[in-house]
């Protein structure tokens, strides 16, 4: 279980990205967070795994406190939390397999990973993760030679290989086209159902949120303005979250839009 209690984040420049956020997430949930850019979605995810330190309140993941944790505690925590990025954050100049193996860096001894002497069972895990996202045949291809959708699947495999209990996805489809976006969202949903990994996805696109989410959290100016079942969501809810009417930019659209 993940619990945010009165969490606030103030950046060094004085920008308040989160203000007194309270949120409880049960194990195995699939949560979609929506909001305008700058609403604090990304900060929320990064506060959860400590990439951005929370400046107030308390965040617990399965009873482990994130706020004020030591470097070693943070590493242990992060090895339990997979993360997927908008820009994929792959190392382009190395193979897909190496990129996936990077997900094991939190557990493999430093000397082994530094020399590239990955244990055999970690290699096996990496292959299985690639099989799960369906691109195992690309294992020895350079990451830069893949398409955007394939690269994001490598990103997912890298998170999966951690065997995480929580998966964070920060705008995972913002750099992808509508078709690929749906495929990647489908991957995430399937992984959530098959493996029971708690999944938190930041999304900008409302139609995708409605299509794939089960619980929706709305952020506006760093404050929680909506938390409820996706079935209860209508255009008025989005008006409330976005503070304006929905435009085409807020929808990923369908294949028809492409033609």
């Amino acid at each position: 279980m993940i619990r945010f209690e009165d969490v606030s984040v103030t950046y060094r420049g004085g920008v308040q990205a989160l203000r007194g956020l309270d949120l409880t997430i049960e194990d195995g949930e699939f949560i979609v967070i929506v909001g305008l850019s700058g609403a604090g979605k990304s900060t929320l995810l990064r506060a959860l795994n400590g990439l951005v330190p929370a400046t107030g309140g308390s965040i617990t993941v399965d009873d482990a406190e994130v706020v004020g944790a030591s470097a070693a505690e943070l590493r242990a925590l992060r090895s339990q939390i997979g993360m997927i990025f908008q820009t994929f954050n792959l190392v382009n100049r190395t193979s897909v397999l190496n990129n996936v193996l990077m997900g094991r860096l939190g557990t493999v001894p430093v000397w082994r990973s530094t020399l590239g002497l990955w244990p055999a069972d970690d290699r096996e895990r990496a292959m299985q993760a690639l099989e799960r996202v369906g691109i195992v045949e690309k294992a020895y291809v350079r990451a830069s030679n893949l398409s955007g959708g394939q690269q994001q699947r490598v990103g997912i495999a890298r998170a999966l290989v951690q065997e995480p209990s929580v998966m964070l996805a920060d705008e995972p489809v913002a750099s992808l086209d509508p078709v690929t976006s749906r495929q990647v969202m489908g991957d995430l949903q399937r992984i959530n159902r098959d493996l029971g990994i708690t999944t938190i996805v930041n999304l900008h696109y409302l139609d995708l949120a409605q299509e794939f989410g089960s619980r929706l959290v709305g952020l506006r100016d760093g404050e929680l303005v909506f938390d409820g079942d996706i079935a209860d969501v209508d255009d008025d809810t989005f008006m409330e979250i976005y503070g304006r009417a929905i435009s085409d930019d807020d929808l990923v659209g369908t294949e028809d839009d492409l033609t």
């Binding site: 099989e131 799960r132 369906g134 195992v136 690309k138 020895y140 495929q183 399937r190």
Partner: peptide, 13 residues
Amino acid sequence: MSEGGTARPVRPR
């Protein structure tokens, strides 16, 4: 996606 069936590639020498 996970159409399965795709064999693992051999590590290139």
